[in-house]
Write a protein that binds this DNA or RNA. Sequence first.
DNA 1: CGTTGGCCAACCATTACATCA
DNA 2: AATGATGTAATGGTTGGCCAA
Length: 253
Amino acid sequence: MDSTCDDIYRSAGLDLGLGLGNQTSKKHGQVAAVKFDLGFEPSLNLSLSSGDHQMVDLKTENKDQLSVASSYSNGSEKRERDIGSEVTEVERVISCRVSHDEDYYEDDDASNGKKKLRLTKVQSALLAESFKQQSTLNPKQKQHLARKLNVRPRQVEVWFQNRRARTKLKQTEVDCEFLKKCCETLTDENRKLYKELQELKALKVGQPLYMKLPAAATLTVCPSCERVGAGAAQNSAKSPHLYGSFTNPSAAC
DNA sequence: CGTTGGCCAACCATTACATCA
DNA sequence: AATGATGTAATGGTTGGCCAA
């Protein structure tokens, strides 16, 4: 007998309302991604998280029977009860793990696991939500989130790590674009200034500089290159480097 | 006190795999 | 069906902070 998680849920009387159907064909992993054979021995374990503190465990006692139990944990208090088919409002399926599935690996054999697990949309969404609040987690928060998502803490850790890296990369790209624009602007301004300088030089050749300046203009000397510049009152808005008064000693030409 | 070694968490570069066009 | 591009989970190495000896 070849059953999907959907089949199991249905046989357990669970109405998950989560659109698992499109995931049941996937080959392996978590969530309703696993096909399995109820005829195997000794047991099948499925874990479903629904909401923050509720865990639904499905177990096969034997190949024909499925027992369903839920456990609620609220802080340190934890209790369990049989729910049979009464669970009909499981809001979210975070994961569905089939321990016998050779494609799925637990902590111990994760190192030699050949396949990598894909996090579900729900899991990713929750992780992203957590990331929005804070981009790093302390061990306690990591544990809590891992429990909530029914994944290994290491997975949470890795996810945050990768997300930080991606965020940083994106920010770098944004910064790079900004700097590019700055560079373009400065290049443009530089070109204009150079043009202005050439025009002024041409004028200077034609007639003495003092003749071109209005009576009110003042001349100041650049402290670093000791060139003469005209007062700020005149043309500073147009070209501060060329015409501005050298009030700031560090503002060299 | 300063030094050293172990531990741990975070980061980084890279690999490996899944998915899609 | 094969393939290349892309996204992302996972790995291994490095670094820095903390703490005890």
